[in-house]
Design a protein around this nucleic acid. Structure first.
Lengths: 351, 351
DNA sequence: AACTAGAGTGGGAACGTTCCCATTTCGATT
DNA sequence: AATCGAAATGGGAACGTTCCCACTCTAGTT
C-alpha cells in the first residue's frame, strides 16, 4: 500500500490526531491524567493507526535518562554469570530499565572497548563482573556520577558497591565439611587469582584454614584452557603423594569443578574415596555418581541485590554515600563425592 | 577539583580546541583524513582533557543509525541459547554493532514487552529465538524495514531469514545410529511442540523415521518444569513394557536430556543397556558414565550466520529479497550410552 | 462584575549529534 | 593576471523528543 512505511514520529501522530506534539508526548510519557478522555482516545487511535512507537534515543537525548543499565560480563558462557544476569534482568525489567550486556571474553582490551560503548549509550548504571578490569576508566566513570556495582569481585581503587559471596565463610564451610567427613589432606584448585578479589580471598582463607585445623593442604592455581596437561599432572602428583589421611580436592569455582571432574574420571578415580567438592552448584553435579558435593551460591539474589543497589543510588541520589558491600552465604549441598567408603574409616590405613 | 564533573559535549570540546563542532564531529566520525594533522592533535588533546565520549544516543538520533542489534531470547539459562548468543556477539562486535539482549522467560507477554523496548531503541536488526512469538508485531517490524533473523525456529507468517539445525537430518542421524547400535524400541521425549517449528520437524521426522526403518517407537511431549512426575511415569511405562528389542530414549534437546538422565539415574537404570541419546552437546555429557551420546549443534556457527545474514541485508540493502534458510548439520558424538552390553547381543534375548 | 484557580492545551527552545552547504586559502592551469 | 579546484574549515538546520512557559477556558470567590 504505502510504498515507504517509515517509522512515524510524535509530530505525525499529533497531526493525525489533530493536536500538538506536547499532548502526544504527555500521552506517552506518564502524564495521561492531564489529558481529557476524548483527546486521549484520539491520540491512542492515531498512534495505533500509524504504528507509532516512541523513539527511546530521542527521549534519552532530551531527558538525560537512557533507561539503560549496562553489564560487563567476563565470560558469558559461565553458568554463574548467566544465573546472576538472570536476576539482574528481572529487576531491571520490573523497574522499567533495559539491560545492555557486553561480554568481554576475559580480555582487558575488549573490556575497555565495551566499557566505552556502554558509556556511549549513556547507561545510567553499570554492573561489572570483569577480569582485567580497566580500573582507571571505571573510577572515572564513577567520578562522573554513574553508579557502579561490582559482582563477585572488588577492584581495589574503584569506589563502588559490591555484591557477592561471603568467600571466607564459604571456604570455612567447605573445610569443616571435608574435615568432618574424614578427609585430612587437601588440594585446592583455582584459576589464577590475578586481579579477581574473590579468588584471592578464597585462596588465602584456604591457606589459613588448613593451618588452623591442622590439615595437610596445598593449593594450585592454573589457567584451565591453556594447560590441560598441567592440571592432570598436579592432580596426579597429589594422588600418588604418600600420606596417611584420605585425600580430597576442593575446587574454587564451577569451571574448575568441571575440569577436575574430567581429570578424575579419566584417571578412573572413585569419587568419595578421593573427596571432591566445589564452589558453585551446577545442574549436572547430582548426575555424576555418587554426586558431587557443592557450595551453592544464591546467584539470583546476588543479581537482584546488584541492581537494587544501583537503583537506590540512582533514585534516592545518595550517589556519594560510601561504598557498601553485600555478602551472601553459600549453601552446602552434600553428596556422595565427600562420603568416604567404609574401609576408609579414620582409625585404619589401608596398605 | 571541578565540583560538577558532568559529561562534556562536542561543542565543549570544540571550544576547548579552538575549533568548530563540525571538525570535532569529523574527528570522532570516520573523517579524520579531512582534518589537518595539527587540528587533529588539538582536538585529541582537548577531548582527552575533558574526558569526552561521543553520545551514541544523539548520534543515533540524527544519523538514524543506532548501531544496535537486538536479540530476543526465550530462555537465557539454556546453554544452547547462550552459545548461539556468544557467536552473535562476536560478529556484532567485529562489525561495530552492540548487542541488546532481552530475555523473555518463555512468556509471550514479556516477549511483546521486550520487543517493544527493542524497537524503542531503534535496533537496526533483530535476532529472534522466542517461544510464543508475537507474529503480528514481528511481521509489522519486518514490514517497516527492520531485518529479522529467526534462530532455531520459524514463524509461519513472518517473512524472515532463518538459521538453525537441519532437524530432519539430525533425527535421521540419531535413528541410524540407534538402529546400528542395536536398539529397536524407542521413546522420543520432547517439550510440547507448540509453536516451535524445530520441535515439530524433529517430532514428525521421528514418527516417519521409525516407520521407514521398521522400528517400534513412541513419542512423548511434556513440559519439564511442570510435571516432573509425568516424565517419570512415561519413562517407567516405557521401560516395563514387554518387548523383544533393546530399548532406547531419544531426547529432543539438552533440557530434555538433563531431565531424562535424572529420571534414569533415580531409577537405577544402567545407561547403554537402555540406550540414551540427545540433541545438543552439553559440557557434562561425557561425565555421566558411560558417557551420553549426543548430536552437537554448531552453535557458534549458527550465531555467526544469524548476524551475518542480518548485516548483509542491512548493508547491501537487499532488504526485500526473499527469505533465506540456512541449515547446519549436527555432529554425532558417540558415547557409552548407546553401546549395548554384550549379553544384549542382537540374536539373543535375556530371560 | 471583576478576579482567581486550575484544568486542558499548545508553541518553541533545548538535548548532542550529523550533514549539507558555504567560505577561505592556495597552488596550479589557462 | 585571471580562473579554477581541491583541501581545510565552519555555520546552521535538522533528528524526535521533553519540558518550561504561555494561553484559553470554565467555574467558583470575592
Amino acid at each position: 500500500m504505502n510504498q515507504n512505511p517509515q517509522r512515524s514520529t510524535l509530530v505525525e501522530v499529533a497531526h493525525a490526531a489533530g493536536t500538538s506534539k506536547t499532548s502526544v508526548s504527555r500521552f506517552f510519557g506518564d502524564e495521561r491524567q492531564r489529558l481529557s478522555q476524548e483527546l486521549q482516545e484520539r491520540i491512542a487511535a492515531a498512534a495505533k493507526r500509524l504504528g507509532y512507537h516512541p523513539n527511546q534515543m530521542a527521549r534519552g537525548l532530551k531527558g538525560g535518562r537512557s533507561r539503560l543499565i549496562g553489564m560487563l560480563v567476563a565470560d558469558i558462557r559461565n553458568p554463574y554469570s548467566v544465573a546472576v544476569m538472570h536476576g539482574i534482568e528481572s529487576v531491571c525489567q520490573a523497574h522499567g530499565y533495559s539491560l545492555m550486556v557486553a561480554n568481554t571474553n576475559n580480555d582487558p582490551a575488549q573490556e575497555r572497548r565495551h566499557l566505552e560503548l556502554l558509556t556511549a549509550y549513556r547507561v545510567e548504571g553499570l554492573v561489572v563482573n570483569a577480569a582485567g578490569s580497566p580500573d582507571r576508566e571505571l573510577a572515572k566513570l564513577a567520578e562522573q556520577g554513574t553508579p557502579l556495582v561490582l559482582v563477585d569481585r572488588e577492584l581495589g581503587e574503584v569506589p563502588a558497591d559490591m555484591v557477592g559471596l561471603d568467600d571466607a565463610r564459604a571456604i570455612d564451610q567447605a573445610l569443616d565439611h571435608l574435615q568432618t567427613a574424614g578427609y585430612g589432606e587437601l588440594l585446592y584448585v583455582s584459576k589464577p587469582t590475578s586481579r579477581v578479589s574473590s579468588r584471592r580471598v578464597r585462596l588465602e582463607r584456604f591457606q589459613h584454614g588448613i593451618a588452623e585445623r591442622g590439615l595437610v593442604g596445598e593449593a594450585h592455581c592454573l589457567t584451565l584452557d591453556a594447560d590441560a596437561a598441567e592440571l592432570d599432572d598436579a592432580i596426579g602428583a597429589f594422588l600418588v603423594r604418600p600420606g596417611t589421611a584420605p585425600k580430597a580436592l576442593l575446587c574454587a569455582n564451577g569451571q574448575v569443578t568441571l575440569a577436575v571432574t574430567r581429570v578424575l574420571q579419566q584417571r578412573n578415580v572413585t569419587l568419595g574415596s578421593v573427596g571432591l567438592m566445589g564452589i558453585d552448584e551446577l545442574e549436572w553435579c547430582a548426575l555424576v555418581p555418587p554426586g558431587i558435593t557443592t557450595l551453592a551460591q544464591p546467584t539470583d539474589a546476588i543479581g537482584r541485590a546488584a541492581v537494587e543497589n544501583l537503583l537506590q543510588r540512582l533514585e534516592s541520589s545518595q550517589r556519594t554515600s560510601p561504598p557498601r558491600r553485600t555478602h551472601y552465604q553459600a549453601q552446602l549441598i552434600p553428596r556422595g563425592s565427600t562420603r568416604l567408603p567404609f574401609h576408609h574409616d579414620r582409625s585404619q590405613e589401608s596398605p
